[in-house]
Design a protein around this nucleic acid. Structure first.
Length: 450
RNA sequence: GGAGGGGUGGCCGAGCGGUUGAUGGCGGCGGUCUUGAAAACCGCUAUCCCCCUUGGGGAUCGUGGGUUCGAAUCCCACCCCCUCCGCCA
């Protein structure tokens, strides 16, 4: 969510920034709704101020006991002591105030409804606008304008024709596509034997790396979340189509651990010195992949359910740019230790994800498929998610709360990592060498010779 | 799923429908005292919004409705937490 103040102060800046992302949002409705909203608030506030004033006066007069005649009116002054006459004045004043307030049918309620309506409309509109890119993001309309920032390792050269992972995995009987489809349909698969163990070994090893060496705290969050949690991360309302939903309990299946990790501190005001937070979580991720219908249907490159290790940081605003660089390095370390050649790609404005202000993708080479696979996407979401989820912090005791910055990055996604491993470490005899770092947990140095 | 109990400020805990953003305590911050510290005493101690912004005003007592001139307080619905029973990995 963007800051409404920014629209008021510098609408042109917002317009340009959104345009650079290819989002030609009309700002007029935002500004107009905001103006109408403020006018309604002002009017309501003034009416309430008047009401409070009268209420206070009535409060001071309430309970004055006065003798009444048969028609409910106070007795004439001649029949009253001076003290009683004073009470009569108070009583009459109270009655006139009450009757006055009763008489004017109350427009406060109508104004409140008006404000609520305008706020909902404005809020709904703001929730559909993406984050603004950081100034140093290359401008471009699509992936062709992305920039390769650096590369690591040389793609291995093969003395034979390397197979794609689906052939390798089927021969090794470590991925069962047919039975996956039998159970759940296309884009589902079953890992078995060394395949299942490899995934588990990778997960454990990555979690250990990030917790023990990179200082992350391990989190195991729910995979089903409420709607507002999906809104907090930016997945709703815009990307409803890509999400699975349980109708009976109105819960959503997470497409990434980023979703629950964002809302872990939703609504909180974090104490001074609490930041930064570094979280790592491995969760299943569920994606309907409706937009990619028919694409990447072979193998496990694009599936409906997969495991992913996710890195997440909550930081003070002035540190987020620098922390993004560190986050990328933490993710890169996974590929380096597995000795998988990769490149770091900075996304251009037009290719940025919805909540992201700046992103780097890690792409690892898959020699069998002959393509660079995106195994990680690391993003600085600045205060975009923090606003949606209302996550703030205090710099000093007593200081005004400010929104935090949030960052996320895969560290890394399992299926594509396994693709790269299988295809890179395959041998001419169809077996696959297990990378050095995984041998202790795998208990073998080659897949498929069990 | 059934039966109870409960949700008030950073925490604990009061609150006959009327000058209650809310007594009191704890914690925190500042001050007095002290060589220093503790103790004692004094003061301060929420968030959001609006405006004619050294100031003024409005809202917020789980959430949303309702009753009322006026609701933390009364009524309804929902959400969440706790205890017990049932079921279950």
């Amino acid at each position: 969510m963007l800051d409404i103040e920014l629209f008021r102060r510098s609408p042109d800046l917002v317009r340009l920034a959104l345009r650079s992302r290819g989002d030609e949002a009309a700002l007029h409705p935002v500004l107009e709704l905001d103006a109408r909203r403020r006018a309604a608030i002002k009017e309501g506030d003034e009416l309430r101020a008047r009401r409070n004033q009268v209420s206070q006066e009535m409060g001071a007069l309430v309970g004055t006991q006065v003798a009444l005649d048969k028609s409910g009116n106070p007795l004439p002054d001649e029949q009253l002591t001076p003290k009683e006459q004073k009470a009569k004045v108070d009583y009459l004043r109270f009655r006139s105030l009450r009757d006055d307030m009763r008489a004017r049918s109350n427009p406060i309620k109508a104004l409140e409804e008006e404000v609520k309506r305008l706020e909902q409309e404005l809020g709904a509109l703001l929730l559909t606008l993406p984050n603004l890119p950081r100034p140093d993001v290359p401008v471009g309309t699509d992936a062709s304008a992305n920039v390769i920032v650096r590369s690591w390792g040389e793609p291995r050269s093969f003395p034979f024709e390397p197979l794609p992972h689906w052939d390798l995995a089927e021969r090794l009987r470590i991925i069962d596509f047919q039975r996956g489809a039998k159970l759940s349909g296309s884009r589902f698969y079953v890992l078995s034997g060394h395949g299942a163990r490899l995934e588990r070994a990778l997960v454990n090893w990555m979690l250990d790396l990030h917790t023990r060496e990179h200082g992350y705290t391990e989190i195991a969050p729910p995979a089903l979340v409420r709607q507002e949690v999906m809104v907090g991360s930016g997945n709703l309302p815009k990307f409803r189509d890509n999400l699975y939903h349980d109708d009976e309990d109105d819960l959503w299946l997470i497409p990434t651990a980023e979703v629950p990790l964002t809302s872990l501190h939703a609504g909180e005001i974090l104490e001074p010195a609490a930041l930064p937070f570094s979280y790592v979580a491995c969760t299943p991720c569920f994606r309907r992949e409706k937009a990619a219908a028919g694409r990447d249907t072979r193998g496990i490159k694009r599936v409906h359910q997969f495991e992913k290790v996710e890195l997440y940081k909550v930081v003070e605003p002035e540190h987020s740019d620098e922390v993004l660089e560190r986050l990328v390095r933490d993710a890169e370390e996974v590929l380096r230790r597995l000795e998988l050649p990769y490149r770091v790609v900075q996304l251009c404005t037009g290719d940025l994800g919805f909540p992201s202000a700046k992103s780097y993708d890690l792409e690892v080479w898959a020699p069998g498929c002959r393509e660079w696979l995106e195994v990680s996407s690391c993003s600085n979401c600045t205060d975009f998610q923090a606003r949606r989820a209302n996550i703030r912090f205090r710099r000093h005791p007593g200081a005004r709360p400010e929104f935090v910055h949030t960052l996320n990055g895969s560290g890394v996604a399992l299926p594509r990592l396994m693709i790269a491993l299988l295809e890179t470490y395959q041998q001419s005899d169809g077996t696959v060498v297990v990378p050095e770092v995984l041998r202790p947990s795998m208990g073998t140095d080659a897949l498929g010779v069990e």
